[in-house]
Amino acid sequence: MKPGKPVNVESSAPDAETPQVWDNMGRPTQRKPEVRLGREVQARIGQQLRALYDDVVKEGVPQNISDLVRRLSEQEDPAA
């Protein structure tokens, strides 16, 4: 853009609400909104992932697994 020369990009854009960006060849292009999803959505994804995982973690150690580990750990030779 030359200094001093007003250029109204928005007026020539078909949709002024759509952010105007240019590709690496300098051609105007549009990017989808999801491409620029930032930390907000990443944080939400992290929260949901941990909540889902922690629901299982909160179940603790199932009795049969606890029994198995205790039994094996009392054996003279755990490999036997």
């Binding site: 995982y53 922690d54 299982v56 973690v57 150690v61 580990v69």
Partner: peptide, 25 residues
């Protein structure tokens, strides 16, 4: 040789997270 109770407890305390990972796999 019996398993060191400290090691056994480390194993047991990993089980909940190990299950969650196994379910995800």
């Amino acid at each position: 040789m019996k398993l060191d109770p400290a090691i056994r407890d480390q194993v047991l305390s990993t089980v909940p997270s190990l299950r969650a990972f196994a379910i995800s796999l």
